[in-house]
Design a protein around this nucleic acid. Structure first.
Lengths: 125, 125
DNA sequence: TACTTACGTAATTCATGGCTTACGCAGAAG
DNA sequence: CTTCTGCGTAAGCCATGAATTACGTAAGTA
């Protein structure tokens, strides 16, 4: 379920901008903040979230922290989307096949019986 | 920039659950809501957001609306991550090469001059 | 025609979280 | 040792948005 953190992290536009700032290579916090319309502490907070999602990692170099993209979070996210993608393709295939099978059958009654009505449970909260 | 909407849409856990409910095939709004701890209107609102992100699409069938995964949004998202991934790999390669070049040089002075200090602009908002 | 089903939409409430300022701390520099 | 730089953290404010209830509507059904 690690992809959840990555998706949450990348949902915010500013945080995505922080992430994109590291796209072309490592940067310090100050460098990242200098290119964005938010304060440096805001960038620090975003970097913490990104780090928690394994999307970035940091190394201390003197008094400055150098952040870089961590491929782990990206790999997790790509893996999730890939599995979803293949599942969807499989579902499409199965659906098309079922439809083709139904078209070649005599249809027991022309009545509009689409689908067995699922058991309905009361939903309140 | 369409990937932004997709990321925003998939950031919410409930909305992700709605999306996942369509992973194995088309479903009606009521069916989706029956499997989730939220009300049916909530599911409707989530589906609207997902539709705006091109992650799902709907077809009317009598009185019910059948939602299914739209591959467009997924493709956009995967494309964004893929391009980011390759950029990151390229940045890593360039960095490793620069580091290897620096290691084989005489190093003009053992002083700790790491990097040219970037122009500092006041940042407040 | 009246009733029921399966929705979408509007209005409202309330929690999440993003941003700021203020502060503290480690490391380099003098 | 003192000063400055670069950064993380805390507290507080405020906007965004997720959920609910109430309502309206179109399409099947009796």
């Amino acid at each position: 379920m690690a992809y959840a953190e990555a998706l949450t992290a990348l949902a915010d536009p500013t945080r995505r901008a922080v992430f994109e700032a590291l796209r072309s290579g490592p940067r310090t916090v100050g460098e990242i903040a200098a290119g964005l319309p938010v304060s440096r502490p805001a960038v620090s907070q975003h970097l913490r979230v990104l780090e928690g999602a394994q999307l970035v990692s940091a190394r201390q170099h003197g008094t400055r922290r150098i952040y870089r993209v961590d491929r782990a979070g990206l790999a997790i996210l790509r893996g999730y989307l890939d599995s979803f993608w293949s599942d969807v393709l499989e579902a499409f295939r199965a659906e098309a096949e079922a439809q083709a099978r139904a078209a070649s059958e005599p249809a027991p009654k022309p009545s509009r019986a689409r689908r067995a009505a699922p058991k309905r449970t009361r939903r309140t909260r």
